[in-house]
Structure formats: structure tokens, C-alpha cells
Amino acid sequence: MSNTPLLDVKALNVVFRTKSSGKLLATNRNHAVKNVSFSVHAGEVLSLVGESGCGKTTIGRILTGLESAESGTANFQGDNILGLSNAGFRPLRKHIQMIFQDPYASLNPRLTIEKILSEPLFIHKLVRNRVEARTRMAAMLKQVGLDPDALKRYPHEFSGGQRQRIGIARVMLVSPRIIIADEAVSALDVSIQAQVLNLLKKLQRSSGVAMLFISHDLAVVRHISDRIAVMYQGEIVELNDKQQIFENPQHEYTRLLLSSIPQVKARSTP
């Protein structure tokens, strides 16, 4: 890890304004993200963990240019990416990729897997022609544990776990610097979740891509992260190495979260 972080977020604030019911012209302010600062180094996995409404997803959407911030900076490779126009953000999309939660909603049902996977390759000019694209895609499908035959098929022919693998293949194909994974395994059944977690960890290790892993599940977060930021009501209440978070939690809320998780106490051997 170098000393300059790949992504450096400082004093980020996000406020959503909704029209107030009743009074004309009045607005409700919802301070969704309050003064949040964190950094992600190259090759590192940082997790944002917290319950619904804590602002973790909003941060992911800000960093992919899908939402705008009230104040603060987010330096990616030294340049502030907040407040960029759509056109200004476009070259960054090759470097900042996103894995979404819902594998049913995040793949266009009318496109074949070949079309879904080749679009980013052509948009970012990573291949010169269809033949080259097909070779790259087939190799990537093998890496994520799918048969290259998948290229001819449509999303509805795949299970949730397989679709999430396709989503991961689409992201990995453009060799990003950082992946923002928002609840990437939450919609999956536990046996499939384990397969996809193993795959994500393997690809992250072998490619050295950094990851901002957003999740509500502390056990999943422990498995995949190097460092963890615990969020509560828009603020980061604790940010530390994962060992420290689990073995020596400092904030009361972290302790509450840890104690709320129902546990299986099984003995594998008698």
C-alpha cells in the first residue's frame, strides 16, 4: 500500500430536500450523510456497515456520480470527483465500477449476456473488434465460474447467484481501480452467498483491485474486509481494522450491533 490513498473522502455531507406536506414552498431537510471522512488504499477492502437509513448506500451513489453532495471532497487518484458533470465523470467510470444488490434488476432483460458484457469493453475502447471481445468475455466467464456458452443466453435463463456472477464479470472486464459493492451478496441464499463471497475475495486478491464493500451483515463484512467503518444515522461512529472492531469495539452502537446478531453455536466435531 502506498501512502497516498486511492480514494480519499473528506468531510462529506449529503442533504436530501423533500417538499414539505402542508406548507407551500417549505422543504424538509434530511441530513443523510454527516461529515463523513475515510480513505481507501490501493488493494484494500474497506467496508461500510450499518442498518437501513444510515447513509451507507448514499455514499456509494455519491462516489459513482449518481447523487450529488452538499459539501466535502472525494479525491480519486488526487483529483476531486465531487461535482463533476456527467461528461466529466465518464472517463472515471472505467476506474470506479459498481456491483449492485439486486441481480434481477441490474441486468437488462432484453440483452444477451454477450451484449451486456461487451458494452463496457467497447465504450471504454478496451478491445478493437468483436473477436477480441469474445475471447476476453469467454475467459472472464470461466474465471467467475460460468460456461462461455452463457454469452448467447439472456439474464432470465440464470439463477440469482449466476446473475451476480455475470454482474461481477461485467465489472472485472474493465479492470477497475476500485469496486463499489452495495449489498452485493445480500439477496442470495446462504449457500450461494458463500460461493459468491469466495469468488469476490479470490478476484479481489488476484487483481489487487480496491473495494468499498457496503453491507448490513457484520459476518459477511468480517469475512471480506481489511478495515471496517460502522455507520449510524449518517455518521461514521467507529472506523478501525477488522480485528479491533470485532475484538475490541469502542463505540456503544458497534457493541449493540454485535450483540444483536443471532448465532449458531454448532460443533462440527463431537
Binding site: A194, L197, A219, R222, H223, L258, V264, S268
Partner: peptide, 17 residues
């Protein structure tokens, strides 16, 4: 059971089905 990442220990890889 082995597919669930453990909360109080670290494992390198999950024993996925």
C-alpha cells in the same frame, strides 16, 4: 452452517456448498 461466515473468528475461504 459452514456457508455462514463466522462472526467471531476469521477463515480464509468459506466451505461453500
Amino acid at each position: 452452517i459452514e456457508s455462514i461466515p463466522p462472526l467471531h473468528s476469521d477463515v480464509e475461504w468459506l466451505n461453500a456448498i
